[in-house]
Computed example of a mutant assay.
Amino acid sequence: MKNHAHRIAGFCLGPAQQVHIQVVEETGSTNADLLARVGSLQSPVLLIAERQTAGRGRAGRTWLSAPGASLTFSLAWKFALPLQSMVGLPLAVGVALAEALAELGVGVRLKWPNDVLHEGGKLAGILIETAGVDGDTQSCWAVIGIGINLMLDPEMAAQIGRPVAHVPQLTERDRDELMAALLNALAQAAVLFERQGFGAFAERWNGLHAYAGQPVFILDQGKVLHEGAAIGVDGSGRFLLDTSAGRTAVMAGDVSLRVREA
């Protein structure tokens, strides 16, 4: 595992070079592991697991993965920003991930607030958890968890129970070089987000929006909160839709977006 970490570091550029990289064979959750350590971290850390046994998604969902069939990793990054300024970070990470995958030849679109889609199915998920810094209200840690489906067998697809996608062509690439390309994009995005906030990413996100102009529902625990035409996001990461009552801006929280079937 140390050899993989060393090789990944060798492909890193710019701000990614300050990240300490660790690779483990198996763990419960890379996010949980890093969250438990943020009080003692001195610099950014990337934790990659060949297999997660208790991977998590938004709203307490389970992220299923199999050895070699996915990339599952978390990046702990300290921001010189108060916790309330982190609202748009999941969307900024989505932009970075989508653009990095495009450079690797994988065309993707973004679904608000934090899904990466490929050919209509979910290819990757993002879970960001934050932690304050003792005695410093102007700084916080973000643990950015990402899972990407590389290969997906029919049995696991059936377990997931919703449209999913995979990109088996990426398994033909050097896995360490692939991981470094993603880390380079994420580290650059983290630096830009700290300096300029989500406003620096809003136009890029809207250019990748999967459902622009389409009729959608915004759900909260299965209850429809809003219904209208999807517009995109504003400079703070709120989702905009045109409803019968006019334009509405929705914060992420634990709400979900669904496309209205024709």
Rank of each mutant, 00 (worst) to 15 (best):
His4Phe: 15
His6Cys: 15
His6Arg: 15
Gly14Leu: 15
Ala16His: 02
Val19Trp: 00
Ile21Gln: 02
Ala36Lys: 15
Gly39Phe: 04
Leu41Lys: 07
Leu46His: 04
Thr53Lys: 12
Gly57Ala: 03
Ala59Ser: 14
Gly60Val: 09
Arg61Ala: 05
Arg61Pro: 02
Arg61Met: 02
Trp63Asp: 04
Leu64His: 09
Leu71His: 04
Leu71Val: 13
Trp77Asn: 06
Lys78Tyr: 11
Ala80Gly: 14
Met86Cys: 11
Leu89Met: 06
Leu89Gly: 05
Pro90Phe: 01
Leu91Asn: 00
Ala96Leu: 01
Leu97Lys: 02
Ala98His: 08
Arg109Val: 11
Asp115Met: 02
Val116Gly: 02
Leu117Ser: 04
Gly120Met: 03
Lys122Ala: 12
Leu123Gln: 05
Glu129Asp: 04
Asp134Leu: 07
Ala142Leu: 06
Gly147Arg: 03
Leu150Ser: 01
Pro154Met: 02
Pro154Asn: 01
Glu155Val: 06
Gln159His: 11
Gly161Ile: 02
Gly161His: 03
Val164Asp: 00
Val164Asn: 00
Pro168Arg: 01
Asp176Leu: 13
Ala180Phe: 10
Ala181Arg: 13
Asn184His: 10
Leu186Ser: 06
Ala189Asn: 04
Val191Asp: 04
Val191Arg: 10
Phe198Met: 08
Trp205Met: 10
Gly207Asn: 08
Asp220Phe: 15
Asp220Glu: 14
Gln221Lys: 12
Lys223Gln: 14
Val224Glu: 12
Ala229Trp: 13
Asp242Lys: 13
Arg247Asp: 12
Thr248Leu: 13
Ala249Met: 07
Asp254Gln: 13
